[in-house]
């Protein structure tokens, strides 16, 4: 699921022995179903969404064909919407930073530990990835409130005297968001670490460097690009995840995803919802392009 894997696969696949190039139609038959799905159900809708974002919205109808930049202007001039954009970016940045920090430590531990431990760590990291987001939301939903597990556990341990609630706070939203993005950061960083020879650490230790110096001088420089890739991937996922922050966070925590849903299903303002989506698409595409340019710089360095 990582760009890192995607990239290497392209470069390796090009020099595969090729057979049957005398029948150039065959590969297109084979790719056709995949292309139909992508073009008809992703390409076409995206174009229609782009068109829709310029349509008019009058008299509470879904949309009226026309051409206006009004919705894009609204996004940036209406304080409600521009604040939502800022909130989304801010929340995604902070959450990706923490998920990369936690994922990095986690990945280094999994990398250094013997194989048996590693399997357990990987299994643990798969949990947030394989359990439905809605189940995770519900899990935290029972943990944070006044009568939830956290408050009750601290109360019975005698650490607090009054029940308290962390539910519907930005902290809860943030905990949930990091939980969702953590596995992406972990698996990207683990695959980067797996490409490094572990003996390099021993050599560094033999030369007299204490662990932290080894980390700073050897391991960190080797994984710097990987960290950036992990960060941008986490950022992409954090930007797109809206259910978790909107269910766990305060009512005033409006993210772009939440507003898209609100405008689409609640307010029936399709043009505005589309304009918001286009902004999100552009943001994701920009983050992906940035990642790719980082990656190609890295592979150029290695070759």
């Amino acid at each position: 699921m990582t760009l890192a894997q995607t990239d290497s696969s392209i470069s390796e696949a090009t020099d595969v022995p090729v057979r049957a190039s005398r029948k150039p139609v065959v590969p297109w038959f084979l790719i056709a179903p995949a292309l139909v799905i992508v073009l008809v159900f992703f390409g076409l809708p995206t174009l229609q969404m782009a068109r829709m974002s310029f349509n008019l919205h009058v008299d509470q109808r879904l949309y009226v064909p026309g051409f206006t930049f009004e919705h894009y202007r609204t996004l940036f001039t209406n304080p409600l919407f521009s604040k939502a954009i800022w909130t989304t970016v801010q929340l995604a940045l902070v959450a990706s930073f923490f998920s990369v920090a936690i994922g990095y430590t986690f990945a280094i531990l999994a990398w250094l530990k013997p194989a048996r431990w590693r399997l357990l760590f990987v299994g643990l990291a798969l949990c947030p990835l394989l359990i439905s987001e809605i189940a995770i939301i519900f899990g935290w939903w029972m943990f944070f409130p006044k009568n939830g597990l956290l408050s009750q556990a601290l109360l019975s341990a005698g650490l607090i005297t009054d029940k308290f609630s962390l539910m519907y706070t930005e902290f809860a939203a943030f905990v949930g968001l990091v939980y969702v993005t953590l596995p992406y950061a972990f698996f990207i960083l683990l695959s980067v670490l797996d490409g490094i020879d572990e003996q390099i650490l021993e050599s560094s230790a033999d030369l007299g460097a204490p662990p932290l110096v080894t980390f700073r001088e050897v391991l960190f420089p080797l994984t710097r690009t990987g960290l950036l890739v992990a960060f941008s991937q986490s950022f992409i996922w954090a930007m797109g995840t809206y259910a978790t922050p909107s269910a766990l966070g305060p009512d005033t925590l409006w993210t772009m995803g939440f507003l898209i849903q609100e405008q689409m299903l609640g307010k029936h303002n399709w043009p505005l919802a589309s304009a918001f989506s286009m902004l999100l698409v552009i943001g994701v595409a920009a983050a992906m392009l940035l990642t790719r340019s980082l990656m190609s710089k890295r592979s150029a360095f290695h070759v």
Partner: peptide
Amino acid sequence: FMPGVVLGLGV
């Protein structure tokens, strides 16, 4: 790599 909310809205 596209958010589900964008894909859902488009379709």
